[in-house]
């Protein structure tokens, strides 16, 4: 039975609320570096962390991909997190190979978890099955798996003290996730969302020039419903045989849908969003 991990990736989450059903918190941001800096540097955060630790809860740090223009600042912030007593045993979730490598250089024994941005399966496409349905059965079985299920990769990541992964859950990837668990890694699944894409800019910023955002405006999720696809010859109606996530959400620089309705009790962690 998995433990519940609550993601704290917004400004102004309710630090007074009663979190009885939650066993751990992951603090930071999965995809937006600016939001990451803001969340992690909130006043009162350390008080909250200490209180939750006293109550026996685990604290984790969730980090996004790191654009070059923020690399130096990110290194400083990560350095101070690694030095901070109350994050001493915190797992850091990474979504950037360079950051993973840097953390391993400055804090050799720091445990890490690979984030969703660094993992892939053809089964993640909304029409995943259509991609491989024409292949021989044994190929179908393999390409539906998650690419972390690979002895070369698992051994390599162990060297970086990666001991967990964080994933979107699909029916086709389940068998490989169980094998990954057998190989000694923890598998944490997202129950709150299914990530389809990450963009370089937050759409609020992108759509209005004077908006420098990544405050609270972009914490609101915009609902999208597919209207027309675009091909080389122009726009066309979505054919009936194509399943497209509906609704699709755009929040900050993330594009996501609802998590698939699959029981996830056999996994190690279940990640939920803060209210």
């Amino acid at each position: 039975m998995g433990t519940y991990e609550m993601r704290i990736d917004r400004l102004g989450f309710d630090i007074e609320q009663n979190y009885d059903t939650i066993q751990s918190f992951s603090i930071g941001h999965e995809s937006c570096i600016i939001k990451f800096f803001k969340v992690i540097q909130q006043t009162d955060l350390l008080d909250f962390v200490r209180r939750q630790k006293e109550a026996g809860r685990e604290i984790r740090i969730i980090t996004p991909f790191v654009p070059e223009q923020h690399l130096d600042e990110m290194k400083e912030v990560i350095k101070s997190i690694c030095k901070e007593e109350c994050f001493k045993d915190s797992v850091i979730i990474v979504n950037d190979f360079g950051l993973m490598s840097y953390i391993h250089k400055i804090d050799e024994n720091r445990k890490m978890c690979l984030g969703r941005s660094l993992l892939f399966s053809f089964d993640y496409a909304p029409w995943g099955h259509k991609i491989y349905e024409n292949e021989p059965e044994k190929i179908q079985k393999v390409v539906a798996q998650i690419n972390f299920y690979d002895d070369e990769k698992m051994e390599f990541y162990r060297g970086y003290h990666v001991s967990e992964i964080e994933v979107n859950l699909t029916a086709g990837t389940i068998d490989s996730l169980k094998e990954i668990q057998k190989a000694g890694f923890k598998v944490n699944v997202h129950k709150g969302s299914f990530l389809y894409g990450t963009q370089r800019s937050c759409y609020i910023r992108r759509c209005s020039a004077e908006q420098n955002c990544c405050g609270t405006e972009c914490e609101y999720a915009e609902e999208l419903e597919i209207e027309e696809f675009w091909g080389g010859a122009g726009y066309y109606k979505k054919p009936d045989d194509i399943a497209f996530p509906n609704p699709l959400y755009l929040r900050g620089n993330q594009i996501y849908g609802k998590a698939h309705d699959i029981p996830c009790d056999c996994f190690d962690g279940i990640i939920v969003d803060a209210e």
Binding site: S117, F120, A125, K130, I131, L195, G197, D241, I242
Partner: peptide, 19 residues
């Protein structure tokens, strides 16, 4: 989307046209 973080895969083997 960012390279490696786009699950709207296309031109990978599907017969449907998602553009």
């Amino acid at each position: 989307n960012l390279a490696g973080v786009c699950n709207f895969c296309h031109n990978n083997g599907e017969k449907i046209n998602v553009g």
